[in-house]
Amino acid sequence: MDDRYQPVVSAFQERFAAEMQEFRGEVTLILAPEHIVAAARALRDEFGFDQLVDVTAVDYYPQEEPRFHVVYHIRALEKGMILCLRAPLNGNAPQHFSVESIYPGANWYEREVYDMFGITFSGHSDMRRIIMPADWQGHPLRKDYPLGYEEIQYTFNYNEINLRKPRPKD
């Protein structure tokens, strides 16, 4: 691990009981979800991590505890450091906390996570779907959501599939 990360890691281990993981030189801190807002504030104000790069999630279906990990990548522009935070969430329709008040750029990312995974963020100013249509059912990037694969037409089943295809009216 790069020595520059040591102060952040030890501070977080002490304050938020964070678990540190290292893989291919990347430092990941796993925190309980209730600490995420305080952690983000500490990162921005104390350690100079000024830009939120990315918020996304990973679905570990069928595992229930934790079902999701919300993954944050936060960068210190001047120092060229990047830190990954992970917040494990349980259950099918989890609640999480928004970091929009600290990093305004989180707005759209959290909306996307809500849209794609169905994780709601409390304290978010505009919790609507962002990518899928507003009347869409389900959250596409969950592992229990089907890919929506259409059968491929070969000569032997061409007519059969052709009949089932939607056609334009008029």
């Binding site: 596409p140 089907p146 890919l147 929506g148 694969y149 259409e150 295809k165 939607p166 056609r167 334009p168």
Partner: peptide
Amino acid sequence: CGGVFNNYAILQGVDEIVP
């Protein structure tokens, strides 16, 4: 025909909605 994107998000050919 949908091309490489055979998934939930993409219409499998625009001929589903217009001639």
